[in-house]
Design a protein around this nucleic acid. Sequence first.
DNA 1: CGTGTTCTTGACGTCAATCAACTCCAGTGG
DNA 2: CCACTGGAGTTGATTGACGTCAAGAACACG
Lengths: 229, 229
Amino acid sequence: MTNQRHSLRAEDAIMTTSPVDTGGKIHTMPIVKPSDSVVYHQGDAAAAVFRVRSGIVMAYRIHCDGTRQITGFFQRGEMIGLDGDGVYIDTAVMVSDGRLETIPTSSFLSEPAIQHEVYTSACHQLHDAQELIMSLTRKSSDAKVAEFLLHLARPRRDGETGLNVTLPGRRQDIADYLGVSAETVSRRLAAFRREGLVELPDRRSARILDIDALVARALASRGNHGLDP
Amino acid sequence: MTNQRHSLRAEDAIMTTSPVDTGGKIHTMPIVKPSDSVVYHQGDAAAAVFRVRSGIVMAYRIHCDGTRQITGFFQRGEMIGLDGDGVYIDTAVMVSDGRLETIPTSSFLSEPAIQHEVYTSACHQLHDAQELIMSLTRKSSDAKVAEFLLHLARPRRDGETGLNVTLPGRRQDIADYLGVSAETVSRRLAAFRREGLVELPDRRSARILDIDALVARALASRGNHGLDP
DNA sequence: CGTGTTCTTGACGTCAATCAACTCCAGTGG
DNA sequence: CCACTGGAGTTGATTGACGTCAAGAACACG
């Protein structure tokens, strides 16, 4: 129903799944991954988790009816590839060029410190997933898009009057993350532009002009078009 | 917007937060918790995780606008109270009488086996949260309710022609889990009853009569009322 | 400059929230 | 035993938001 073309170069996955084991040493050197390459596939045996060193990674799952749900965008410092039963629960793809650190699952069975770090990361992601659930079910499409822009702006604020954000993917990618249609994303962005809340210099970037107004839009829940009494 | 009355007896929480530390022994005796009592509160310092021994526990979060999102129902063997930063990320309440095992967080710093078990549980919950995200955003209310009934029936199948499930909470609770209104839950259940898919002996239980038809309804995505070609 | 992809914009239909009655209990007290 | 009460559930009518379909515009590619 959504997009069937996942635009992934499958051959890139080869260099991924082989964990870099530097002769007994557990901590591994970062591997370079080009844009659009697959980090790991949903359902594959989970040999390692990865820590993002640079670039943006997106994780998604394919529904039985072919629709795609993007479960998260990950940046520097975040862990991806967590599993519970030795199998990856989602697919991870590079959205831009970047570097990843490989941490074999065998290593954190022996090293409690690493295990604790991975555990903490899992809890954070659980927290994020629950936040996403709140957003997806209780917010209007308007609020979803507004919140999404603010979420992107949070880590990278330029101290200027406006905030520049690079949109991680096409309209359809954003739509698959927010659980709306691509047309709706387009409509809401256009509305924000018309009202002077954002500028849209090109397809992959946005510039926030009125952050307070955007925050107000992000907080509004279903059918709530103003402030509460 | 949803319900403000959380019907919780706050005084019950007292016996909860004190972890049962039997003189240096880490594994703890189960504590008895009556229905509607609070296991822990969102935002409280996370002193322990809990394993459910009997009864049903529900976890929820309160949105800034007062709406409630139930993040899960937990039964025997499942872990609750996971955190990443020493603070509970949701509130847990007993839906029925039950017993809980208390596992102080301090203990699984020293015991890797426990930590690994908690980590595995965190990953499972992450998996469940992502499944919930898929359901919430891509499915019709019809499919949500059907899937919910099947989810409840999975752990406790009676080998008979019909499957009896006890509904964990009122209509509003189910609604807050599925991200729909209570009226919609009522309507969908009534529709299933009218079509002979389920029986509703009383308010807190359901009996699945035609599980295949229910599965078909659960798989249907938005606007898909029949089979695919 | 042609072709395919991505984005935008409009028209229309549908599903579910909302509001509002009404019913159905469980508990309470006369 | 029955009226009263309040919460839970059901059902109907209405409305709005968003998905879908479709056509066009903007952009990227060779």
